[in-house]
């Protein structure tokens, strides 16, 4: 464990808590893409299957359980409890155009052709594009609530911090995982446009308005 990965995990944790807070306090999931949340739940479900087969540390296991449970809770809140506030008209990204190519790629490019490893690879690839429905929805609605912007900033920062973690681990531990690094860079690059808007607008107290 290193400081970059720890701050990254905390940023990820903060993002999930911010999203749950937003939904609970506003009793609404307006402006949130349910499709992205389903993809995140799929990412955790397919990545953390080793929860039962390999023990890394208490921290690792506790965080995995937390991520799986909160992602399922988020999907439940969006599609059941606060369903009336779910903006399905703007959440129209065709996720099958993400899941199918990612699934195929996971079969072709992986570290080991075993079920757990292919699922892990699928999860890494899927996570790198899972935010697209959310970014697409924001470009359609043309704006985002401030707390949703904070959620996205924390979520985008987590993987950016993981890139620093991989640099650290490469130089100090000789650890290098090309699949995770490439997917992590793609994932972080997708947030760049949003990061720019967040830093130039939200941090000055303005709302984010995307060119619709």
């Amino acid at each position: 464990m290193n400081i970059f990965r720890l701050i990254g995990d905390m940023s990820h944790l903060l993002a999930i808590i911010l999203l749950l807070l937003k939904m609970w306090k506003t009793r609404s999931c307006a402006g949130i893409s349910g499709k992205s949340q389903i993809l995140f739940a799929l990412v955790f479900a397919s990545r953390y299957l080793d929860l039962f087969t390999s023990f890394v540390s208490v921290y690792n296991s506790v965080m995995k359980i937390f991520f799986i449970s909160t992602s399922l809770l988020t999907v439940y809140l969006m599609y059941f409890k606060f369903r009336a506030t779910y903006d399905s008209n703007h959440d129209t990204f065709r996720v099958e155009f993400l899941v199918i190519p990612v699934g195929g790629l996971a079969f072709l490019v992986n570290h080991e052709f075993s079920p757990l490893e292919i699922l892990w690879t699928f999860s890494i690839y899927l996570e790198s594009v899972a935010i697209l429905p959310q970014l697409f929805m924001m470009s359609k609605t043309g704006e985002a609530e401030t707390i949703t912007s904070h959620y996205l900033f924390a979520l985008g920062s987590y993987r950016a911090l993981y890139i620093l973690n991989w640099v650290y681990r490469y130089y100090f531990e000789g650890f290098f995982d090309l699949i995770a690094v490439v997917a992590g860079c793609v994932q972080t690059i997708l947030y760049c446009d949003f990061f720019y808007l967040y830093i130039t607008k939200v941090l000055k107290g303005k709302r984010i308005t995307l060119p619709a």
Partner: peptide, 10 residues
């Protein structure tokens, strides 16, 4: 190259 077979990151 990867050190250990198992993935120790979240």
């Amino acid at each position: 190259e990867k050190l250990e077979k198992e993935h120790d990151e979240l």
